[in-house]
Amino acid sequence: MWDWSYAWSIVPELIKVVPITLIATFGGFAVACLLGLPIALARRARSRWISWPVTWVAEFIRSTPLLIQLIVLFYALPNYGIVLSPMTAGILGLGIHYSTYLAEVYRGGIESVPKGQWEASRALNLTKAQTWLRVVLPQSVPPTIPVMGNYLIVMFKETPTLSAITLVELLTTAKAIGSHSFRYVEAITLVGVIFLLLSYPSGLLVRRLELHLKRRERSVEAK
């Protein structure tokens, strides 16, 4: 059932669209990182008028499917005169969806800084900016880096969903190849292999980074 020579013959066609997948991934990740920060800060805001609606909107985005959100961006927005290309809609959709996840990562990072650190900064009469830049962020950023790395990988694996809004990425290409020759096995399996080859080593890298950071933290504590 599995034809090696046929499989090899379609590899170049598939490799050719890998950059499309990567552009969508990194573009979406950039949007998510940027958008996540205001969401995180708004959720922490003292005023209920800010924190409450943002919390609910974020929860709404988080608990509804990316696919539907993409369809809204790509098929519903034109009704209001906003027409997006598949790639733009894809990057925006991925970015908005995962910004709500990254907001949680940021929030966790900020909240992991003990209260005593804020109090000590106050006691030393640091300004608010100094407290954030010199005390809070240096402590809260490192532990979030591996988590963010994991989300980058998660987003990478979500890109096939963009095929639903006609973006010609790996899975769309594989399906096209498959329907041409009615040989789905090789094409779809190869897409899986490509995903595994890219995501598994990245996952290992993130895990190593995580261990490294933990060890560093421990050695700092020991001193």
Binding site: K157, E158, S163, L171, K175, G178, I188, F195, L196
Partner: peptide, 15 residues
């Protein structure tokens, strides 16, 4: 975990 859900879905259905 290393491949996509949608790829797996297609694989189960088409391949």
């Amino acid at each position: 975990r290393g491949t996509s859900l949608l790829v797996q879905l297609f694989w189960m259905y088409f391949a």
